[in-house]
């Protein structure tokens, strides 16, 4: 496969369970594809320099910063964004835990936090507070001081163990 500098490259991926085909410039980043082409604006652009984690989505089961992934790198991948978390109008247990524990203030970092925790809690269903704090090392929040975010994450772990979905 080859993409010309001025030309387009064909990609196919699944986004929130739906198959998506598109022709994109090689330099297009996944976050811009999700927001500007697919209209999935729940994934945010924060620092734009791979630091803040607001653009975190799940790619093939793993949390990635979509500002640091070219669209062609996601060819053939399964992508999950914050829009794909709820089922039949019912929030995911991580989202419910953020709601109930007031795990946000302005909400800008929240989708990234939720997606990082989706990956982390899938591998570590019973984390300590310290492990949660390490897991969200790559997600910056400028409002909360993280206390309620950590509380939400620990609560989410309990809810997910209780068979609350996921």
């Amino acid at each position: 496969m080859e993409g010309d500098g001025g030309g387009l490259i064909e990609v196919t991926m699944r986004v929130n369970g739906r198959e998506v085909k598109a022709r994109v410039p090689p330099r297009m980043l996944l976050v811009h594809f999700l927001r500007d082409v697919l209209g999935l604006t729940g994934t945010h652009v924060g620092c734009d320099t791979s630091n803040c984690g607001a653009c975190t989505v799940i790619m093939n089961g793993k949390a990635v910063k979509s500002c640091t992934v070219y669209v062609f790198m996601a060819d053939g991948a399964d992508i999950l964004t914050v829009e794909g978390l709820s089922e039949d109008g019912k929030l995911h247990p991580i989202q419910e835990a953020f709601w109930d524990n007031h795990g946000l203030q302005c909400g800008f970092c929240t989708p990234g936090m939720v997606m990082t925790l989706y990956d982390f809690l899938g591998r570590n269903p019973d984390p300590t507070e310290e492990e949660v704090r390490e897991a969200i090392e790559g997600n910056l929040c400028r409002c909360t001081g993280y206390v309620n975010i950590v509380r939400s994450a620990l609560d989410a772990a309990q809810r997910m163990k209780g068979g609350g979905g996921g």
Binding site: M1, E2, G3, G5, I9, P26, D75
Partner: peptide
């Protein structure tokens, strides 16, 4: 910021 244009090869 967008990177400068480039050509990609995917072997």
């Amino acid at each position: 910021m967008y990177p400068a244009s480039f050509q990609v090869f995917i072997p």
